[in-house]
């Protein structure tokens, strides 16, 4: 028995260490974002210092960061919106009206999620250059729609499949048409999982880097690109500003973490039942 409890104690210690490693790097970055440069460039790491908001003020005051934030919000937002408007009905049709192509359609949709970004970005760059849409928000939105639409369809099919069939049957008996059932019954019942799917699609394109790097040069640059450019600066690196811009970039995905973990839970509950 005592052997067992020592093992358990050791296991807990490892878990604690893992949890520390999961959170501490991000916490340290956030801390550094509130430091003056002299407090960052120290031989020993400093935990106690006079906090400053200069870094955030500088980052938010810079046109490039502000434009990047704007571009990220517009392109991610629009692509997610289009993905949801087209993808949710499509997912419902796949889940509720199966026919012989349903499996092939799901295979096709999911395979898109795994397409190497570099293989998409190179030809699209040529295409957008020829259409004179290169480095525009429009071309980035269209490209990102490929990602958001595929993701929304992929994650929403199981969400709609979990809506009890009996509820939809009852609605049909009450005289609801198929469209009314979708909008008034299925959509509200599945809404919690669907919000998770849409949030996941948003995080995916918000974090996207390679495609944005290849398809934009100045006007349509998104926040990850702007932040990565800051990290490549030369000798006198403004570390505080860098940390602040990384924090800014990471806030939106972290806001969704509760929704995403809820989605994870419901996805595995289905299997057990």
């Amino acid at each position: 028995m005592s052997r067992r409890s020592t093992g358990r104690l050791a296991g807990r210690a490892i878990l604690l260490l893992a949890a520390f490693s999961a959170v501490f790097p991000a916490f340290w970055t956030a801390l550094n974002a509130f430091k003056n440069r002299v407090d960052i460039v120290t031989p020993t790491p400093l935990f106690i210092f006079t906090p400053t908001l200069d870094n955030f003020a500088y980052v938010l005051g810079r046109d490039s960061v502000f434009d990047g934030l704007f571009n990220s919000l517009v392109t991610s937002g629009a692509a997610v919106l289009i993905g949801a408007v087209l993808g949710l009905p499509a997912a419902y049709a796949i889940a509720r009206h199966p026919h012989r192509w349903s499996k092939d359609i799901q295979f096709f949709v999911l395979s898109l999620r795994f397409l190497p970004p570099v293989a998409v970005a190179i030809p699209l760059m040529v295409i957008w250059l020829q259409l004179e849409l290169y480095d525009t928000r429009l071309s980035l939105i269209i490209t990102y729609t490929l990602l958001t639409l595929a993701t929304v369809v992929w994650l929403s099919v199981p969400a709609f499949a979990r809506v009890p069939k009996e509820v939809e049957e009852a609605a049909r008996v009450d005289g609801y048409g198929p469209y009314a059932i979708f909008f008034l019954i299925a959509l509200p019942i599945a809404s919690r999982s669907l919000i998770g799917a849409v949030a996941f699609a948003f995080v995916l394109v918000w974090n996207e880097f390679l495609i944005a790097l290849m398809l934009t040069t100045s006007d349509a640059k998104t926040l990850p690109i702007v932040a990565s450019e800051l990290t490549q600066l030369g000798r006198d690196v403004p570390w505080g500003i860098l940390n602040a811009s990384v924090v800014l970039l990471s806030i939106p995905p972290l806001l969704f973490i509760g929704v995403l973990s809820g989605m994870l839970n419901s996805a595995f509950k289905r299997k057990s039942s």
Partner: peptide
């Protein structure tokens, strides 16, 4: 713990890369 463990994967890769580069 499960919630804490998904923090790293939700971070943008650019952020994760910078956090560790520093």
């Amino acid at each position: 713990l499960a919630l804490l463990f998904i923090v790293p994967v939700v971070l943008p890769r650019v952020s994760a890369a910078f956090v560790w580069k520093f």
